[in-house]
């Protein structure tokens, strides 16, 4: 079937759709429960991974500080921060995700023209070191409003500076 714009529309039944409906599948409750159990086994490794992830981020930040005009280095730091953000909550470290998300916003502002703000970056790295400690392991952002509000204000300031630059 095609129309006057040259567009053609046709049905597609992919192998995924055919196979996934076969008999012998698992129910949502069972699948989610089994997946959570699988993730639980990874949580033990997460402490080590988090330490490595932070080291990678710090290295990327140090390089970005040394060469603040190098967009590739800022990009590397941004990606390292994204990695921490994307994984934190999944393995139960909600505060790590929150702080890393704020750092992503700061670094994204820098990618878009804001000046490199060493104090602001250090403040987020310190907060991440805090968030990865055992005593903050099961702490949600709601439970530490002062820390979260401070980081939020700092990130908003950085973003507004980028906006003023207009890049």
């Amino acid at each position: 079937m095609s129309n006057s714009n040259g567009a053609r529309e046709f049905p597609v039944e992919t192998d995924f759709q055919k196979k996934v409906r076969r008999a012998g599948g698992v129910t949502r409750n069972q699948a989610v429960g089994d997946a959570e159990a699988q993730i639980e086994t990874l949580k033990e490794e997460f402490t080590d991974w988090l330490k490595d992830g932070l080291t990678r981020l710090q290295t990327a930040i140090q390089l970005a500080e040394t060469y603040p005009d190098n967009a590739v280095l800022i990009e590397d730091a941004f990606r390292s921060s994204c990695e921490l953000r994307d994984i934190g909550t999944t393995v139960g470290y909600e505060l790590v995700t929150f702080v890393a998300n704020r750092l992503c916003e700061v670094l994204d502002a820098m990618r878009n023209g804001a000046d490199y703000d060493e104090v602001l970056i250090r403040c987020h790295l310190d907060a991440l070191q805090l968030a990865r400690q055992d005593i903050y392991k099961n702490v949600s952002p709601d439970q530490v409003p002062d820390l979260c509000d401070g980081l939020r204000r700092a990130a908003e300031h950085s973003i507004s500076m980028a906006g003023r630059i207009g890049k």
Binding site: V26, D34, A37, L42, F46, E83, I87
Partner: peptide
């Protein structure tokens, strides 16, 4: 690590 997490979930789904 993200790949590992996604794969763990998928393994849990069968």
């Amino acid at each position: 690590y993200m790949c590992m997490l996604a794969n763990s979930m998928l393994r849990g789904f069968g």
